[in-house]
Write a protein that binds this DNA or RNA. Sequence first.
DNA 1: CAGGGATATACAACCGGTTTGATACAGGAA
DNA 2: TTCCTGTATCAAACCGGTTGTATATCCCTG
Lengths: 344, 344
Amino acid sequence: MAHHTVTIKDIAKKLGISKSTVSRALRDHPNVKEETKKAVTALAAALDYHPDPVARGLLNKKTYILGVIVPNLSFPYFSLAVSGMQEIASKAGYQIMICQSNESYETEKAVIRTLTANRVDGLILSISIETREDAHIRELIRKKVPLVLFDRVIGDIPVPSVVMDNTDAAFRMTEHLIEQGYRRIAHIAGPESLLVSKQRVKGYTLALRKYGLPIDPELLIYKGFRIESGKEAAEALLGLPQPPDAIMAVSDSAAAGAIMAIESRGMRVPDDIAVSGFNNEVYTSFVKPPVTTVSLPMYDLGKEAIRLLLRQISHSEEPVSFEPRVLKSSLVIRESTRRKADTQ
Amino acid sequence: MAHHTVTIKDIAKKLGISKSTVSRALRDHPNVKEETKKAVTALAAALDYHPDPVARGLLNKKTYILGVIVPNLSFPYFSLAVSGMQEIASKAGYQIMICQSNESYETEKAVIRTLTANRVDGLILSISIETREDAHIRELIRKKVPLVLFDRVIGDIPVPSVVMDNTDAAFRMTEHLIEQGYRRIAHIAGPESLLVSKQRVKGYTLALRKYGLPIDPELLIYKGFRIESGKEAAEALLGLPQPPDAIMAVSDSAAAGAIMAIESRGMRVPDDIAVSGFNNEVYTSFVKPPVTTVSLPMYDLGKEAIRLLLRQISHSEEPVSFEPRVLKSSLVIRESTRRKADTQ
DNA sequence: CAGGGATATACAACCGGTTTGATACAGGAA
DNA sequence: TTCCTGTATCAAACCGGTTGTATATCCCTG
């Protein structure tokens, strides 16, 4: 820095007044003469003065930075949520520091350490697939770090959270398949460790039960969100003595994998077997057949997560609800779950 | 903060020594007795002491935070690059602060302001579609803010940059189409403001020229990266008295849009018209037909951008090259550009 | 005209580290 | 013994703001 940045001291010196008066003038303190205020603000503008957030942060222990930890940014799923967070945060004068856990428990713990070491004002977390313990989260609670869990939350822990209506969405999707005439409905579920997966499984079984359909454990496969998972699970399902007539996949990628497996056997979607996904990723609308899926409000989820966090930060002593905030999703019905032709 | 965080002062008091000795002991200064060092490090570990980066930053004017500005995170295109950046940055002890310009010039300027106000140690920027001026970038150069442009760069400006071999990739793709027997090749280009678009157009025309094919301005449409852009451009192309027999799109989304337009006219890809994309997004492999595209090393691009930035930051006076660092892409040949059937 | 209360400003301490200069006490050379 | 060098430590200043307290001036009231 050849030409050193303008500080409050420079302004004070030029005007022949003290640092404190300059500081008060800039913050519009009542005990400063109108005339002085004008002179200070004018000079500050002329010199392009900006208060140093680092110095300010040292004093009032605020960095105006919020930490965000997501498993992976390269899925629109999470990057959309992050976009929503950024919108609300920047409106409130906060910056966001985003880290990826890459689905690793160790990395998750590591980034939590760096973020807290960097004195972020709060933390937003969506846990990794590997995360099965909550000790690191309880540690944050103990240290009174403002915290919000989102989407991939952990159960039974006193932390505010924002989630999707996973159970309900899966219920509605299963119900939709039943209404379309399908009776032997399989579910390619996500990793068993995630609450999200369990909730979707719950919605699936609830719907089957409501309509008096048998719950066949062979038709429920815990696998994962990726294409390969869908492909492998579908292959297993198609190899059953009594294969399903519909597959509800836990994600659009898994659905895509399932469709690939189905078609490579010379079967067709939805004529031979219906398939549905989850997430409403762009390509679901233009693959053939277009895939029925669930539109999840990830952008709103991100916005709401930041709001909950800011609420904790500002009125730090106000009681915050640990009841998960649930956002509504909506079914997007497309060709891949077309009504089953009567085949008696 | 009920139980205030452990500071260097606490350690000094407990051991009955001065702050400065503690500081030196922790930084392994030679003029500190081995015995003292051991006592200090032991107590620091016991108290779970971590130096406050804010205080440290105030003093040495380093925040160990790098600012990254991308147009949009919800495309794998950029979020992959960001993942690469994070890998290298965190290895070097830096954090990343990511902001989105949302393709708006004003937002881009605004986030640059907040990031520099927050004293980031350096900045990585991929410009928005709207950005046609470079005054804000020259301002950063004037202020000596370490800066690297990536992917969406601006020409003729003394700043290190990392880019893809856009011209070459487009050349190879056009050449591939020509080799497959196509002769009337259209190009749905990106926004005319972006150098990326111009370079791909250049590769396209160079290839046509090399093979002695006419360059028909009707076949070149500047449009955009999105599905809608591809759809609209393709509709215009198909409405020509002499429609093209192949379309090279500037992105996979545009290619998807083009395919939709083609098929809605009852034509087929590649039998009636070939289509290629750019980016190698996941879905290009499983749509029907699978789309020929270009695999871009976005992850490596991000890694390299951080490396260039860190090099500027560390040896700040070493001359840095303003010659763009060019990374190689590779063609992914698929069904959508199958060899043209001879139709004499 | 003394005393009380605004008003306007200056001084100094502080946040949590790092760094400079001073000090104290070794041991070795002159 | 004196001087010098090296070792080990401490006090104080500093980074750039904020804030509590002291000080000075002015106006008003009794």
